[in-house]
Design a protein around this nucleic acid. Structure first.
Length: 414
RNA sequence: GUGGCUGUAGCUCAGUUGGUUAGAGCAUCGGCUUGUGGUGCCGAGGGUCGUGGGUUCAAAUCCCAUCAGCCACCCCA
């Protein structure tokens, strides 16, 4: 069996799981469209620099989580660990600055070489939303409103809460960073080992630490909130006012931070307590510095991504699929007319299934298992008279229908 | 990448201090019912006990390694 094992952290998505997966993606796509987002899809892999340069050479995603390999031409290629960088690249490659502002929706697999656990896979799926070219808070509000709409539509809104923070503009953050480091200097030796490294790489991230000692130290640390310049303060207030106006509940979480330099202003996460350690279901933020960092013209952007598998775990069960009508030929001579009836009904818009073998009893049992609403039995007696037996699988009642006008007849009944 | 726990039929699990042919429920298949499902009754198939090595007269059971899963950390959807 070892040879037939799927690669660690990958998963086949089958049957009910797949229906649920598709339902989530399709509902999200439909609502995004309703909010004026257009669906697009960047490639699943890019030149490695697209991600290494945008995510930062020191981030964990780059240093240990990317699926990177050389292609036959010797170029370094990486399976996308997220959507944003690829979409930003596409924006610049296609000269879309001409058409900005743009609102994109995307969905598909992403890859991270992490140790798998519940709610964490090496290949997983995201739905993703980005607004490019809008500097104002309207975009932040819009993007969060869409997220809330989707979560509500999927029925998980009650299990999720919105946490929100501002990272300020680069000026505010730079100034604050100094203040924070000053505060931390005297605690350096009391911090956990992880947090000592964070001090050098991303001091803000220490707020995220789950270490008790770190948390104690951070509980009285100065907050970015109190060191925002006017621009940043006003921007954040606008976002909050906009959410209030839409009746979207949130919780300002001053400890919510982001590691990467190109982030600014709004950062948010929809979190749940129902998924264990992986509480984040949907997360995003503003990345005004990204395009410039990639070598393009400075273009503001904001977006989020949600994990489809995590959403699936929250939903649990998929809505029922469409119920088929099952065509059952009895004997070889019924085969051709049965396939013809199935063909005509399918072209008329019915969902028709037809098995491959078995006696009537077995075929009925399978039809029942497939949740068929009705069954069309074609036996030799019926064929001789040009009719078929239509059995309602709900009531068990049967009636003969003329094969010649079967499409019309079924249109009336189903 | 680090630490802890786990690994018996397709699924959920039992297996007594190591001791003959490893069990149950569900699912599958066949029959009761030559062309009638969902509930019933009878029966059948299906397991290199994750994999490899070791200890022992004897290993599903003990030891080591490895792979995978779960939980936590790191990080993140």
């Amino acid at each position: 069996m070892a040879d037939l094992q799927p690669v660690r952290g990958t998963h086949d998505i089958l049957a009910d799981d797949f229906r649920l997966h598709r339902h989530i993606c399709d509902r999200a796509a439909a609502l995004a469209a309703r909010h004026g987002f257009q669906e697009m899809t960047p490639p699943i892999f890019e030149f490695t620099e697209v991600f290494s340069r945008t995510l930062g050479e020191t981030s964990d995603v780059v240093t240990k989580e990317m699926y990177t390999f050389d292609d036959r031409g010797g170029d370094s290629i990486t399976l996308r660990p997220e959507f944003t960088a690829g979409i930003a690249r596409a924006f610049m490659s296609n000269g879309l600055a001409q058409e900005a502002p743009l609102k994109f929706f995307a969905r598909g697999p992403v890859f991270r070489h992490e140790r798998p656990q519940k709610g964490r896979l090496r290949q997983f799926h995201q739905i993703d939303v980005e607004i490019l070219g809008v500097p104002g808070a309207q975009a932040d509000i819009e993007v969060i409103a869409l997220a809330a709409h989707i979560l509500d539509d999927l029925g998980v809104a009650k299990d999720v809460r919105l946490e929100l923070n501002t990272l300020g503009d680069p000026e505010s953050r730079q100034a604050y960073r100094g203040v924070l480091l000053d505060y931390l200097a005297k605690y350096r030796n009391d911090l956990s080992e992880d947090s000592r490294t964070r001090m050098d790489k991303n001091p803000l991230r220490i707020f995220d630490s789950k270490d008790k000692g770190d948390q104690d130290i951070m509980s009285s640390a100065p907050l970015l909130q109190d060191h925002l310049n006017d621009t940043s303060r006003v921007f954040f207030d606008e976002v909050l006012a906009g959410l209030d106006a839409l009746g979207i509940a949130y919780e300002v979480q001053p400890r919510l931070v982001r590691g990467l330099d190109y982030y600014s202003h709004t950062a948010f996460e929809f979190v749940t307590g129902t998924l264990g350690a992986q509480g984040t279901v949907l997360a995003g933020g503003r990345y005004d510095g990204l395009m410039e960092q990639m070598g393009g013209r400075a273009t503001p952007g904001i977006g989020w991504a949600a994990g489809v598998e995590r959403l699936s775990m929250m939903l649990g069960t998929a809505p029922a699929g469409e119920r088929p009508i099952v065509v059952i030929p009895m004997g070889d001579e019924a085969m051709a007319p049965a396939m013809k009836a199935a063909h005509d009904l399918r072209r008329a818009g019915h969902t028709i299934d037809m098995g491959y073998s078995g006696n009537l009893k077995k075929r009925l049992a399978r039809a029942n298992k497939a949740n068929a609403k009705a069954v069309l039995i074609l036996g030799s007696d019926e064929l001789a008279r040009g009719v078929a037996t239509l059995r309602n699988m709900e009531s068990g009642t049967q009636a003969e229908v003329k094969l010649s006008d079967i499409v019309e007849t079924l249109k009336l009944h189903f």
